[in-house]
């Protein structure tokens, strides 16, 4: 009994430590003080000025860029990755292993190697870096995760279903749409969401591929901000909003997953 209590206390202390910084950010998003840690009374002012388009135009621009890049990159990687997963799944063992290895390279490399290598690619090809190069870079490191989330679904699928559809007169395209796609859809959705969050969170790869045309994402904005010594106060409400939105999204996704499991 005592042991159980100690165990639970340990878990919750660890969680408390993990959440302490986030809680501080959220709490201090409701006060006006420029410096984080100064409490000057409750106020909605930071939230108001965040959505006041004039004052923090560049921050909102960075946010819009981040979301646009994430949506495009996640969509393309989901399509590319799902098609690739079906292809890889149908390869013979040796080629499948080889492709599997190629697929894990960007995951193993880590941000900085991916960033440097793509930077050198764009520089060597003489491509001006900007929005497109960032999107391409994000697709590069997101697609492997999509492949990895679709693959288990294909493995679980009954291979006879596809053959059966063909025997019953479906064209390969119809069989794909009506048999394979519904089976792998949950994997595609989680791959898409994973790609979305990876892209939004990315900093290192973006820094190397964003060029110097003045394009900013949330990460590079914060980085520039932090180097100047301070944090734009409006980042506090913005982070708080992002955190709450993601919290709600994750709860919805988990609910869905639980429901799906129950209906199975």
């Amino acid at each position: 009994m005592v042991r159980r209590v100690i165990e639970q206390v340990y878990l919750w202390i660890l969680l408390l430590l993990l959440y302490a910084p986030i809680i501080i950010i959220i709490v201090y998003s409701f006060t006006e003080a420029k410096v984080l840690g100064n409490w000057t009374g409750f106020s909605w002012k930071l939230y108001e000025s965040l959505f006041d388009t004039g004052a923090h135009h560049s921050l909102m621009n960075a946010m819009i860029n981040t979301i646009a890049i994430a949506l495009i990159a996640a969509t393309v990687s989901t399509v590319l990755g799902s098609i690739a997963a079906i292809g890889i799944f149908n390869l013979r063992a040796r080629s499948r292993k080889a492709m599997g290895f190629v697929n894990t390279i960007p995951i193993l490399n880590g941000d900085i190697i991916t960033g440097v290598s793509l930077f050198l690619l764009f520089v060597s090809l003489g491509i001006t870096q900007g929005f497109t190069t960032v999107v391409l870079a994000h697709i590069t490191f997101c697609t492997p995760y999509v492949v990895l989330s679709v693959m288990p679904r294909l493995k679980q699928m009954n291979p006879n279903l596809y053959e059966a559809a063909l025997d019953l007169g479906a064209t390969p395209m119809q069989a794909l749409r009506k048999v394979i796609l519904p089976e792998i859809r949950p994997g595609m959705i989680s791959g898409f969401l994973l790609a979305l969050t990876l892209s939004i969170d990315d900093f290192a790869v973006t820094v190397f591929t964003i060029g110097n045309q003045g394009l900013e994402t949330l990460s590079t904005y914060i980085y520039a901000d932090a180097r100047k010594g301070g944090l734009t106060p409006e980042l506090r409400p913005l982070s708080a909003i992002i955190f709450v939105v993601i919290l709600i999204l994750l709860i919805i996704i988990n609910r869905r997953a639980d429901k799906a499991k129950k209906t199975e």
């Binding site: 098609i83 149908n90 492949v147």
Partner: peptide, 26 residues
């Protein structure tokens, strides 16, 4: 090209251009 194996091709080409060649460039 009509088999589903060929579906690996786009990703293979993509990986060569954006993963393998950049690493060789390093």
């Amino acid at each position: 090209f009509s088999s589903r194996k060929s579906w690996t091709l786009p990703y293979l080409i993509f990986s060569i251009v954006f993963v393998i060649v950049p690493l060789l460039l390093i």
